[in-house]
C-alpha cells in the first residue's frame, strides 16, 4: 500500500505513459526542473528530447505540440498558470480541437493539456486564480477535473491515451490530497462519473477539489439529510446517465462548482436535471459569483469561492 499524493499521482501517470509509449513527450515551461510538480525527475529519466523546456511562448509551443501530434507524437503540454489558457484558447480550440472535423476525419489529434494548480492558490490574485474549465466544455474540448490522487492518475493516463485533445485541470485545492492506493492504478475512462457517497434525499454534484468538501458536508449532515455525492470527474463528455440515475432517485439537486456562475458547468447540470427529471424542489447552485475576478486579500479571495457553509445551506433549502 502506498500513501500517494495528488501531485505524485500526476507525476507517476506521466512517467508510466512515457515508459509505455515512446510517442509520449512532455513540453512546457520549467518542465525539466519540474517546477510545477508533475514533471519532476522526468527529464533525467527520459532525456531532453522527450521532456522539452520551452521558452515563454505559450501560443507557439501549443501549436508546436499540435504539429507534433499530427505527425505521430502524443504530446502533453503543461501550463503552470490556469489563466495561460486564455492566451492559448485560439491554439487549443480553433486549431487543435477543430482540426479533425475540418479535415473530414483525416487526422487524430492526441494532445493533452495539463493545468496543475488551477483555481485559487490564495494570494495569487486576479490573473493566476481562474478556473476556466467551463470555457472548454462550452467549446467542446474534452475536459477532466480529477478530485483524488487515484483519479488524477487514472484520468491523466486516459487523457494521454485519448486520440482527441483533452484538458486536465488539477485543482490547487486538490493537489495536497493523499490517498492509500494498492498496486498498479487503472486508467479511468473519460466520461465516467463516480458516486463518492450514496444517499437518498439529495444529490450533490461536486467538481474537483470540492468533492472532498462535499463529502465533509454530507458527513456533517448525517442523520439530518441523506446526501449522495456525485463526482462527474469528466466535465466533457459528461456522464449524463449517472446524473440521471442519481437525481432520478433523489429528485433533489445541488451543484457545488468552483467556477463563475453564468453559463458554467453548474448551470448545465441544473438545466439537464430540469429537462429530464421531475424535481421535488428547485435545484441550487453554489458557485463563484458571476464574472468573478479573485481579489488579492485572502478574505476577499475566499469570499469569492464557494464555501462549505453555503453548500450546507443549499442542501437544507432543497430538502425543506
Amino acid at each position: 500500500m502506498t500513501w500517494l499524493s495528488y501531485t505524485k499521482a500526476l507525476n507517476r501517470a506521466l512517467g508510466d505513459a512515457m515508459a509505455a509509449d515512446p510517442a509520449v513527450c512532455v513540453l512546457g515551461e520549467d518542465v525539466g526542473a519540474g517546477m510545477a510538480g508533475p514533471t519532476l525527475g522526468l527529464q533525467a529519466r527520459f532525456g531532453t528530447d522527450r521532456v522539452l523546456d520551452m521558452p515563454l511562448s505559450e501560443q507557439a509551443f501549443t501549436s508546436f505540440a499540435l504539429g507534433a501530434a499530427l505527425t505521430g507524437m502524443r504530446p502533453v503540454v503543461e501550463f503552470q498558470i490556469p489563466s495561460l489558457l486564455f492566451l492559448v484558447f485560439e491554439q487549443i480550440v480553433n486549431q487543435a480541437h477543430k482540426f479533425r472535423l475540418m479535415t473530414g476525419g483525416q487526422a487524430r489529434v492526441p494532445l493533452t493539456f495539463l493545468v496543475p494548480g488551477s483555481g485559487s492558490r490564495l494570494g495569487w490574485a486576479g490573473q493566476h486564480s481562474d478556473h476556466p474549465y467551463a470555457l472548454f466544455v462550452h467549446a467542446g474540448v474534452k475536459t477532466v477535473v480529477p478530485a483524488s490522487p487515484a483519479d488524477a492518475y487514472g484520468l491523466l493516463r486516459a487523457a494521454v491515451e485519448d486520440d482527441d485533445p483533452v484538458v486536465v485541470f488539477a485543482p490547487a485545492g486538490a493537489m495536497g490530497a493523499r490517498e492509500d492506493v494498492t498496486g498498479q492504478l487503472p486508467p479511468v475512462p473519460l466520461g465516467s462519473a463516480r458516486v463518492r457517497r450514496a444517499g437518498e434525499d439529495v444529490t450533490v454534484v461536486a467538481v474537483g477539489h470540492l468533492v472532498a468538501e462535499a463529502l465533509q458536508v454530507a458527513d456533517d449532515l448525517d442523520g439530518e439529510v441523506s446526501v449522495e455525492v456525485l463526482d462527474p470527474r469528466t466535465l466533457h463528455p459528461f456522464d449524463w446517465a449517472a446524473l440521471r440515475a442519481s437525481v432520478g432517485r433523489t429528485r433533489r439537486l445541488v451543484v457545488y462548482d468552483d467556477a463563475n456562475r453564468g453559463c458554467g458547468v453548474a448551470a448545465e447540470v441544473v438545466a439537464v436535471a430540469a429537462e429530464e427529471v421531475a424535481l421535488l424542489a428547485p435545484p441550487r447552485r453554489v458557485t463563484r459569483p458571476d464574472g468573478a475576478v479573485l481579489p488579492f486579500a485572502p478574505d476577499l479571495d475566499r469570499a469569492s469561492q464557494p464555501q462549505p457553509h453555503q453548500l450546507r445551506d443549499a442542501v437544507r433549502a432543497v430538502v425543506k
Binding site: 501560443q59 507557439a60 509551443f61 501549443t62 501549436s63 508546436f64 505540440a65 499540435l66 504539429g67 507534433a68 501530434a69 499530427l70 505527425t71 505521430g72 507524437m73 504530446p75 485560439e90 491554439q91 480553433n94 486549431q95 482540426f99 475540418m102 479535415t103 483525416q106 487526422a107
Partner: peptide, 27 residues
C-alpha cells in the same frame, strides 16, 4: 488539407501554421 500528401491544412487564422510546422518538423 490532404494529410496523405503532407498538407497539414490551409488555415483560416493568419500566421497560425508556422508553429504547427515547427512541431511537425521537430517530431
Amino acid at each position: 488539407a490532404d494529410l496523405s500528401l503532407g498538407i497539414l491544412g490551409a488555415n483560416g487564422i493568419v500566421g497560425a501554421g508556422a508553429a504547427i510546422a515547427v512541431g511537425a518538423a521537430w517530431a
